[in-house]
Amino acid sequence: MTLLNLLETLLVIGMLGAALFVVRTRDLLAAVVVTAIISLVAAILFYVLQAPDVAITEAAIDAGLTTAIFLVALRKTERYEK
């Protein structure tokens, strides 16, 4: 097990923790912020798996567009889940 595998394991555990946090939290804005971590780790995993084009698409769509769309949707509703 090399050091890079250890780093990937840490990142995947962080991705799992972020997904659990997003599902369980009541604050929807915090959920939108933490969703960025999931896309971040997905981009790194595509990168390490030697798929740079997929990683570029993941970075472009998920880092910029998804958060903006979620925020525009959140503006129309309430911030805290009942």
């Binding site: 960025a36 981009a43 990168y47 740079p52 990683a55 570029i56 970075a59 472009a60 880092a63 910029g64 958060t67 903006a68």
Partner: peptide
């Protein structure tokens, strides 16, 4: 290039 694009677009969020 991926790092470049991520740095340019991670700012938007």
């Amino acid at each position: 290039d991926i790092a470049l694009i991520y740095g340019a677009l991670g700012f938007i969020a």
